[in-house]
Write a protein that binds this DNA or RNA. Structure first.
Length: 354
DNA sequence: TCTGGGGTCCTATTGCCA
DNA sequence: TCTGTGGCAATAGGACCC
């Protein structure tokens, strides 16, 4: 019998780190966004959210809604640093932690005498040591915990059973639950399904027909707040990549290769720093009409060096030869060699032939 | 007014091989 | 030798997340 799960989410994380460094901005609408004509909002302070500014929104649009907003370009090194500090505090309190992304984590609360007071203590310790606010959700599984942490942020603290989640969010749009994004919401909408209660009530066979044997039933599980409560404490990266969006679309092949070279150099550098190497090199090209094309090649041995990466990536790009202006180009390496793979290569026995 | 960058996972298709 | 089948790896695309 599994114990409760907590989901911890740092409130408006990037903006909060910036406000910490620049206390004079406290109480003002602050948005963290890339500069340039194509920048988007990565985080908005809660003051900015009052103007309808949200993450993912083009910065130009955000500034139209909130002209007095202060725009700060993201400083990912600083956010990683604060994240490390907070995650270390979490691990001081809780043994089994699954970090997701930079600002959130699932916590295994199994066996704690009082999960709630343990979480109250944790949140106040994080605030005391870093001035970062966090929202907490506690539930029987990851899904309930996650939705609960989202329900009353900032500074939220919500404890729910699956049944309480079903009741409270019965009339919420299906996109409330993580895993149902814009595309799936739209397709469900076309079937007349808007709310979680409606999704729960629909005939599974109909969903299987439209979404397949796996995703169909999975949608009902999501709507019912049935989910795994497993905490995966160790996750290994499976890919690393670099990409860039041009301020203006690029037509020249030479310019594309120049950009590809810069990205490949950065990527090789990062791979070597992280002691990672992979066998599959992939490029990504986004055209002016937003179609995205990927091309990949798998080679015999795992690599992390600039020369090999740029050689393969350039060949892939020349082979594809985009026929429209390009707005984004990227390069990545996947298929990382793990220690297990290494030892398997050296297995002294062949499997018997069939 | 258009839509970043860094990832993960899933699915479908295809070709190879036993 | 021909044909079918199942498994697997590689490839491409796409949805989704923070």
């Amino acid at each position: 019998m599994a114990g409760p799960i907590a989901h911890l989410d740092l409130d408006a994380f990037f903006a909060s780190v910036e406000l910490l460094r620049r206390p004079e901005l406290r109480g003002k609408p602050v948005i963290v966004a890339n500069r340039g004509p194509r920048g988007v909002v990565t985080t908005a302070s809660y003051e900015a959210r009052l103007f309808g500014v949200g993450s993912g929104m083009p910065a130009s649009q955000a500034l139209r809604r909130c002209p007095q907003a202060i725009v700060i370009p993201p400083d990912s090194a600083a956010y990683r640093e604060t994240s490390r500090t907070v995650m270390a505090i979490i691990r001081d309190h809780i043994e089994r932690v699954e970090q997701l992304g930079i600002d959130e984590a699932f916590l295994d609360l199994e066996g704690l005498h009082s999960p709630k007071s343990a979480m109250r203590k944790l949140v106040s310790d994080i605030y005391g040591k870093t001035s970062m606010r966090a929202s907490i959700g506690i539930g029987p599984n990851r899904l309930v915990a996650k939705v609960a942490s989202d329900a009353e942020k900032p500074n939220g603290f919500v404890v729910m059973t699956a049944e309480q989640a079903r009741e409270r969010f019965a009339d919420a749009p299906v996109s409330l639950v993580p895993g149902i994004g814009p595309r799936t919401s739209e397709r469900l909408g076309e079937m007349g399904i808007k709310t979680l209660a409606e999704l729960r009530a629909v005939d599974v066979d109909l969903l299987i027909e439209r979404f397949g044997a796996r995703q169909g039933p999975a949608l009902v599980d999501l709507a019912s707040f049935n989910a795994s409560s497993e905490i995966v404490t160790e996750r290994e990266a499976v890919s690393e990549s670099r990409e860039t969006t041009f301020d203006q679309d690029i037509r020249s092949g030479d310019e594309l290769e120049l950009a590809l070279g810069r990205l490949a150099a950065e990527l090789a550098d990062a791979l070597q720093r992280n002691q990672r190497s992979g066998r599959t090199i992939r490029i990504k090209v986004r055209l002016d009409d937003w179609t995205t094309v990927t091309r990949a090649k798998t080679i015999d041995s795992a690599v992390d060096d600039y020369e090999t990466i740029i050689k393969v990536a350039t060949a892939l790009l020349r082979d594809y030869a985009p026929q429209r202006p390009v707005r984004l180009i990227g390069v990545g390496v996947t298929g990382f060699a793990s220690p297990t793979d290494e030892s398997q290569l050296m297995l002294p026995f062949e499997l018997p032939a069939a």
